[in-house]
Amino acid sequence: MSDTVTKDAATKDAASGHLASDKPSADKTPRHVALFVTCLVDFFRPNVGFAAIKLLERAGCRVSAPTAQTCCGQPGYNSGDSASAAAIARRVVDVFEKFDYVVAPSGSCAGMISHHYPKLLGEDARYAERARKLAAKTFELTQFLVDVCGLEALDVSLDRKVTFHDSCSSLREMQVRAQPRALLGQVGDLNFRELPDGESCCGFGGTFCVKYPEISDRMVTEKIANIEKSGADLLLAGDLGCLLNMAGKLKRAGSKVESRHIAEVLAGLLDEPAIGEPETGPATGGER
């Protein structure tokens, strides 16, 4: 545990050019990272979880995905059911606190743990301090790979025009913006295009998208217009919720743009069809 870098320290190190990974580590056991798989990855796209494991191992970490995990409690938290959310949060603390780090391939779930758990359990005498400690060592995947591990040389390439959607939680709760771009910059042959109006929400919003479908649809319609405007043929993001929403809209609209989680590209795990694409579809990773 002594080599655990908290987020503040990681940022400071990164800013001064001394990444945690630069420190002599010969006499140290590798960081033991717990993968917070997320309920959406478990349900919709396990490939993202395996890509995350591959990336973390490449960065020199020992990775476990505790089987006792389920969900971070965000659906209840955002729907006003704080009591249930707190009950789930306490469980997550129990399961994950023994690891050096917790990493999620999602800014939303990482944000829930690192941003909201301390508030949610702040009055809980047994859990308040533990929630704060867990929060300090919980990271979004690309943030962890860059700020803590200093991962370089991914040794993958992808000859595609790619754009990236920043999820609201990544961008504003986790302050993640540079990290995914830095990693994509290491992917050979990749042609990156910024998404116009990139700070706007895609309209997913958890239960929002089914409670207020018309407004959600307007938002995602704007978003896919900007995706098309970027000229990209592959949309990446770090949150599966946003991706399901945007891919679902792109496909309904008959767009040729494909959607993937950024981890799949960084890990080179592209055998599975892109999100929402048929299994007999064109081979991914190539030209169309």
Binding site: F44, F50, T67, C209, P213, S216, K249
Partner: peptide
């Protein structure tokens, strides 16, 4: 989930969940 599907498709879930595969030793 008509609120979702009225205006967009729902990408299909994976046939086997992450944890089921992970438990069996699959690593991607």
């Amino acid at each position: 989930a008509e609120g979702w599907t009225v205006s967009r498709d729902l990408p299909a879930p994976s046939r086997r969940g992450f944890h089921a595969q992970y438990r069996k030793g699959y690593r991607g």
